[in-house]
Design a protein around this nucleic acid. Structure first.
Lengths: 151, 151, 151, 151
DNA sequence: TTTT
DNA sequence: TTTT
């Protein structure tokens, strides 16, 4: 079906360090747990808060960025898409919905430089970082059209 | 945690008519199944397509809009937020992630006027429809500030 | 500056047919005028409506899609970025802000098949169309990672 | 026209402190200059960067948040809508396009706690702050529906 | 289960 | 005029 939009945008904090895996074909994947929360006043005027936990799966060059710079407690912005996988456990089919940050339009922006986990260094990073899933392709003006005035 | 963003935007078609329920306290809820899909060429140059099915849960006035105007096959735009519910079945905990279209920032836009379900009319509508979850509140200029020139 | 987001999303109708130009280096550009509008009730309970007109500039393969399928009256979804150009007229510097649909993350979805302008044919199109600014690159799964199970 | 979307999302830094005004009717307005930028490598392999400057106009309670917590150098996320105003100068009509953060769906998230302006405190804050344009209305669950299980 |  |  042409003409779909499947876009998720999150700003939140990581509940733990990213888990990094490498597939058999050598592609890197980062698995994050990201919390968003909202607060409101209930009918009794009490402040309520709910936290939502998201599983974010990052592929490709952005996984490297996550590995290098994202830590437990890091705040980040991600744009990806919803994907629901099915898997089986004890003969029961189960479903997991993830935010997949991969391919066209994917974005990851590190929103702070703190390492969060207290202990270990991030190994050379921790600064503000941002990236796109753009294996050599790239951003708006990479095509050299910007100097042209069509109108 | 202050300062979160949890936003999902979808444009797709409904796999079936909305299911409408009313809670014990009289609130209306619409449950939709919405498909998005993407296509690409694989390494062999073959056209591939994957469809993703989303559960969209709409509360409040927007549920009325869905009930009146959305049908199997309808194309629509929604903006909502991700929410994962847990429930138990056969003693096993399970999780379901839904796109909840409710509260601040929620949007629903009907993108076509077809009824989709073949026979019956939608009962007075079917045209282009859009709405927000704005119980009488409303859009940007409802506060009458627009005539003022602050700068 | 790393870590920026500059994203505009519009759903609206075209006020006229796209204007198509080709730069000296052969790149195609489509210039659109797109209307969005909002309505609300003012303090007197009167229904008010305001229409906002946007200049949308589309580069590259998406310009071809616009040329082929978009017409006066067409409804479409675009995602692009804000860009403000300065130019001079009669010795006075002026600024124009446009929504540039180009490069990473750009999207264009035709939301209906109507030609709108009554008269001329679209020349073979008019159906539902969607595209990305992806010169051969492409969508999420074009990298063949989808069959891998990293976790 | 029903069924429009006019949404701008920015993450960037402020070029100067917010300018705060109050209209004759007592409404507060904050005027911000926010920079986004993107970088890429040109054909010669040289790193290029372009900065885009946005005028962001914030009304209502969010203007208070901006006044209290945003400073020159602050990084923030905003969601608003595009609006083009016309005005006259020296008998010439001119247009200014702004990102208006006001009304339904408007969002402002302060992404850091620094005050930026060097000396003075922000007057009790400076930490992470976020808000919506929700004059007493509010977030997703303020309607008390969350305890109900419709399906 | 939609759509193209 | 920000930031990296």
């Amino acid at each position: 079906m042409a003409g779909s939009l499947n876009s998720v945008q999150l700003i939140g904090h990581l509940g733990r360090d990213p888990e990094i895996r490498t597939t058999q074909s050598g592609n890197k994947v980062a698995n994050l747990r990201l919390a968003t929360s909202e607060s409101w006043k209930d009918k009794a005027g009490e402040r309520q808060e709910r936290t939502e936990w998201h599983t974010v799966v990052i592929w490709g060059p952005l996984a490297d960025v996550a590995e290098k710079y994202a830590r437990k407690g890091s705040r980040l912005y991600v744009r990806g898409q919803l994907r629901t996988r099915s898997w089986e456990k004890d003969g029961v089919e189960r479903y997991t919905t993830e935010v997949v940050v991969q391919g066209y339009g994917a974005e990851l922006i590190l929103l702070d430089g703190r390492n969060g986990s207290g202990g270990g260094s991030t190994g050379g990073g921790g600064g503000r970082q941002a990236a796109r899933d753009a294996g050599g392709e790239g951003s708006g003006s990479s095509d050299g059209w910007d100097d042209e005035i069509p109108f």
